[in-house]
């Protein structure tokens, strides 16, 4: 494993008035790593992710993403990351190739790069025939795979995936993970949240947030040994069972 760190945080904290959403998060994520960011609803995952994406200023602590400071270089960060979530990914009323062009443009790619990337991507996903189809008319599974490919179209250092696989069938979910493995193998760092505990097993390391703090962080196998259980679901349950916060 390459040990070059692409995300480094030190006591990263976010308060909303008296409420401490994230309390002194200290961790690092290495290049090419698949990092699972788990936690109960309301534990502070979304807040942490927004800070790392340069969308929300921390209250205190330090963090760098792709070598850029979250306080002063948020715009540089946004150019070096990709983002995909189940709730928001592609525009339904644009065609497949329009979506690629749109996101390529947003990420600052040149017209010629976008053209090259579009044809490469369409052939990789075997979507050539669907290039002019509206995204709303393609099956949900294809949409998800396309959304992931679009989120890394500009060759980012890190891609943030916020519950990317909710609601898809088990075969599509695994095909989606094949794409994640492939991206990680090419050196893209993958930062992923999920409620599927079997997917936690696919990560190199996972952190589990409970009530605003990282309750534990390690490789899945080591966590299972530590808590003397046989699945990540049981690890999660052992850590999050006594959570006080149950917001969203």
């Amino acid at each position: 494993m390459n040990t070059e760190a692409v995300i480094v945080t030190d006591k990263l904290t976010k308060r909303f008035g008296p409420f401490i959403a994230c309390n002194e998060l200290t961790f690092q994520v290495d290049k090419g790593e698949i990092f699972g960011f788990l936690g109960a609803n309301g534990a502070g995952k979304t807040t942490a992710m927004r800070m790392l994406c340069g969308l929300l200023n921390p209250s205190s602590g330090k963090a760098t993403v792709a070598g850029f400071d979250v306080y002063t270089q948020a715009n540089r960060i946004k150019q070096r990351i990709g983002y995909m979530s189940q709730r928001f990914s592609l525009y339904d009323d644009l065609t497949v190739s329009e979506n690629i062009r749109f996101f390529g443009g947003i990420y600052g790619m040149s017209i010629s790069d976008i053209k090259k990337k579009t044809s490469a991507l369409l052939s990789e996903l075997q979507l050539e025939k669907e290039a002019k189809t509206l995204v709303r008319d393609i099956p949900p599974g294809w949409k998800q795979k396309l959304a992931f490919s679009v989120s890394i179209v500009h060759g980012p250092d890190i891609v943030f995936l916020d519950e990317p696989t909710g609601g898809v069938d088990p075969v599509t979910r695994r095909q989606f993970w094949d794409l994640i493995y492939e991206a990680a193998d090419k050196g893209v760092t993958v930062f992923v949240t999920t409620h599927y505990m079997d997917e936690a097993e696919y990560c190199n390391r996972v952190s589990i947030m409970v009530d605003g703090v990282i309750a534990d962080l390690d490789a899945p196998a080591r966590l299972k040994t530590k808590y003397q259980v046989s699945s990540m679901e049981e690890v999660f349950y052992a850590l999050a069972r006594n959570a006080v916060r149950k917001a969203d």
Partner: peptide, 10 residues
């Protein structure tokens, strides 16, 4: 239970 964590689902 869609989008709900393991503990709440249980």
């Amino acid at each position: 239970t869609t989008g709900v964590d393991v503990v709440s689902r249980k």
